[in-house]
């Protein structure tokens, strides 16, 4: 097992390096740079010398390969430098937003799991009945409804029915948990619905597959209590693919919630990313992409590890 873990960890390096190269040069291909954008806002008479001094200050006058080496040397030491736009250290810029995105992702996951597993199991057990059809339609609708629109509908509903709006200013959980929950529960529900739809479908089809296995028939033939068969024999084995989709969705939530964050005025990683790209803030965008890619690759790694742990056949292959 140890050897397997090391091998998988080493394999992460070339992928991350590829992501680094890709985002670094992608940012430099984008027309217009940060310095031009900043001076364009200030006056139409920006002197060329001013632009050049600013570029030199940010190190943008260096040859590309040199800029890349300086940056990657920092990344290896987990030093992402300062935001080119605000001048604040990137770790500081990301910290609070990361906490928000993480909390939202965890809440959405809890909602999704609570909905998906019972519904998926129920649909599988009552295959081809109206229960199954209802669950399927509800989950296909979940995949079809844009989360950001669902968020707008939630806000609108609260406003019209209860004459109440969720708080629009973020309060960290450790400052005021109640206030924090009042704000984050709505986006978590909006995102959780889609998320649960993905997981419900996977639970249903994994359960159906497992229920047809010989060992389930054997367990039934032994006269085992049906509930025990379902929880111990079927559900446990059906959880592997469900775990995968839950983990992958989780990784996606950690940076992909660009639009929902906009609707709820949440300063999460997604919104930060949009701002960073709009400002051509090279260092911040690069750091964010590396973070999101790392989360994604790491979650994938954890999933593979869980597979190897839960299914010994994979480990010894």
């Amino acid at each position: 097992m140890g050897k397997y873990i090391v091998k998988r960890l080493v394999l992460m390096i070339p992928t991350l390096l590829g992501v680094a190269v890709l985002i670094f040069f992608l940012m430099r291909v984008v027309p217009g740079d940060l310095v031009e954008l900043r001076f364009a806002g200030e006056s139409a008479f920006a002197q060329k010398e001013n632009l050049d001094t600013e570029r030199a200050r940010l190190g943008l006058d260096q040859p590309l390969w040199k800029q890349f080496l300086v940056w990657i040397a920092g990344v290896v030491r987990l030093d992402f430098g300062k935001s080119m736009w605000t001048g604040a250290p990137i770790i500081e810029e990301i910290k609070l937003r990361f906490a928000l995105s993480l909390q939202l992702a965890i809440m959405a996951t809890i909602i999704a799991v609570l909905l998906a597993i019972p519904l998926g199991v129920l649909a599988a057990l009552k295959q081809d009945t109206w229960v199954d059809y209802t669950v399927r339609i509800v989950s296909i609708a979940g995949l079809a409804t844009p989360s950001f629109w669902l968020g707008i509908v939630f806000i609108l509903g609260l406003l019209i029915v209860f004459k109440w709006l969720p708080p629009m200013v973020y309060t960290p959980f450790w400052v005021n948990p109640w206030q924090n929950m009042l704000q984050l529960i709505w986006p978590a529900l909006a995102v959780g619905y889609r998320y649960s739809a993905v997981a419900t479908r996977m639970t249903r089809s994994a359960m159906l597959e497992v229920l047809r296995e010989d060992y389930i028939r054997t367990a039934r033939a032994k006269g085992l209590w049906e509930q025990l068969i379902l929880s111990r024999h079927a559900l446990k084995n059906a959880m592997l693919p469900v775990l995968t989709v839950i983990a992958l969705e989780f990784a996606f939530l950690m940076g992909g919630l660009v639009v929902t964050e906009q609707v709820f005025n949440l300063n999460g990683l997604g919104l930060l990313f949009v701002e960073a790209v709009a400002h051509r803030d090279y260092t911040l965008t690069q750091a964010l992409v590396m973070l999101v890619a790392f989360v994604f690759i790491f979650v994938n790694f954890l999933v593979d590890l869980a597979y190897a742990w839960l299914d010994p056949r994979i480990r010894f292959r």
Binding site: I23, G255, G256, V259, V274, V277, V292, F296
Partner: peptide, 22 residues
Amino acid sequence: QRVMDIFLAFPLIILALAVVSI
């Protein structure tokens, strides 16, 4: 496969955003 892995490490919407900004 390695090149595809790199692209897969970006969330769909983020890659789309990057392309639009270019």
